[in-house]
Design a protein around this nucleic acid. Sequence first.
DNA 1: ATGGCCTCCTGTATGC
DNA 2: TGCATACAGGAGGCCA
Length: 276
Amino acid sequence: MPELPEVEVVRRGLLHHLPGRRITGLATDGKVLREPVPEAAMKRLLPGTAITDVTRRAKYLLIHLDSGAVMIIHLGMTGRLGLHDRNEPPAAHDHVCWSLDNGMELRLNDTRRFGLVKMAAPDQAATLEQTVFRTSGPEPLSPSFDGRYLHDTARGRALPVKSFIMDTRVVVGIGNIYANESLFSAGIRPNRKAGAISLGRYETLAEKIKTVLERAIACGGSTISDFISASGENGYFQVHFNVYGKRDKPCPRCNRLLSHGVIGGRATFFCSKCQR
DNA sequence: ATGGCCTCCTGTATGC
DNA sequence: TGCATACAGGAGGCCA
């Protein structure tokens, strides 16, 4: 479910509720996510500490504690973080539950269990962040991410540009949906070799990536007020897709039927006339 | 180093 | 209707 805009929307929602809250308890169902949930470390490090901030790097959320400890959460494909009254019965696939000092519980629900929870003690927080993000490329919304960077990084690369921008070592946060949408907006065919694209076109692509992500965040922002009930049903996806999932639908720009294929094992949608 | 493929897991849609 | 199969928005690891 979550790509960068969705994770950012979740972060902003959490920011309205978590900072200042003290964690009073922890429960897990014992299921292994992408890695085992660090239950012992969390039980040792969390109770009694207060949440000071919620930040994001790539598609990871970082929950900072007043002790200096940090918890890192990734939502994988189907992960959701929701705030629930403690009396609300748990849902299927609720794997981790953090009790707060106001009677609410933060619950991590993840059907496919591709999510991830990591916990670091105060003196290990910096090391954990270095480890987790050691291979991460720049943030797409940061000034250092631009057409020049993409062009330089793509030099000599033969892989399709879509796979290139979905590589988290190149740039983080661009999943399949926004790769499809950004390439449509930039008029670039997804299978074009990354190293064969001009600087000018990469400047367009970098701009479109930023625009598409920012618009999606702004869209998701409209549901932030519903965050407490956001077991997900409300969805963060009022984003208007131009091509994603629109196989055999008309291109919104030229009306030609959109093309469909598979690149890097992922569904790919494009207009064979508007994207070259 | 590079690029392509595989894997973890469950739910849902599609086709016969 | 029942069953089998494909596919889903992530991302790290492996191998040629």
